[in-house]
Design a protein around this nucleic acid. Structure first.
Lengths: 132, 132
DNA sequence: ATTGTTAGTTATAATTATTATAAACTAATT
DNA sequence: AATTAGTTTATAATAATTATAACTAACAAT
């Protein structure tokens, strides 16, 4: 019942749908990237009942707000999310339209020298575009 | 007639619309960021005749393909472009939804240690998210 | 200059991801 | 058990982008 506690602790009611989506997102060996579309298909494969598309959107956004998911900054017609919420970066293969993780250690420290008054850095993300 | 040559040299016919869009995009002191929407308004202000929205899309994409514009990788409902096509990075102010240039010298060298077989690096872009 | 060909422009329709709405439902609280 | 506040759901609305097809302009060759 780890997801029940996880949700309760962040002020989200542990509904049947959210728990099922948790299983699809977080009961995996490896973290992964997805679009809402892809997640919907994965849910259909793994779950018997139907979950409304609106609920998938709502849940993904709720989880993102709570820090259980991260949006990946990339220009695509669809929004990409990542179940890996640790500080890391991405390759984006322009030919295959595929995202590949880049560990922090694969990039080395990034030192942002410029400061903006009254603002603090929330995240530093590197996108490395690849081509053949 | 610098834009006529520029377009001809890259295999694009120097049409009236493209030349006018060139003026709006490149006849400026500083480089800038824009969405198609914002560009449309800028064109309306500066140009007497009307340019169709489809043409604005077509032209921006043609210029991007030729390397005269760059897409900025960011998650937004609208696609952001940059007239600064040199290698550089961005702050994104989450509160004001504003993009700010980060010169390469403000970030320092980025060393990508991981290699992907058969692929070469086309670009390395850093997005620094800011909040209050 | 005129003509034929190709590329570009245009208005509009189609597409598609995402968000809004409002009713029905469910989990937590009294 | 009744109340409430939060969630889910189907569906409609929105909005950015792309496709279509008719028209027009640029260019090359005569």
């Amino acid at each position: 019942m780890k997801y029940i506690d996880k949700l309760r602790n962040s002020g989200l009611r542990p509904t049947k749908q959210r728990l099922q989506i948790c299983k699809v997102l977080f009961d995996t060996e490896k973290t992964f990237h997805f679009t809402i579309n892809e997640l919907e298909h994965k849910i259909k494969e793994k779950i018997d009942n139907k979950i409304s598309l609106a609920t998938v959107y709502n849940t993904v956004h709720a989880f993102e707000k709570k820090g259980y998911l991260k949006q990946i900054p990339i220009n695509s017609n669809q929004t990409y999310f990542d179940t890996n919420v640790t500080d890391h970066h991405h390759f984006y293969d322009l030919n295959d339209q595929r995202l590949i993780d880049l560990e922090n250690s694969d990039v080395g420290p990034i030192n942002i020298k410029k400061k903006i008054n009254g603002k603090r850095i929330k995240s530093v993300e590197v996108l490395v575009k690849l081509e053949d």
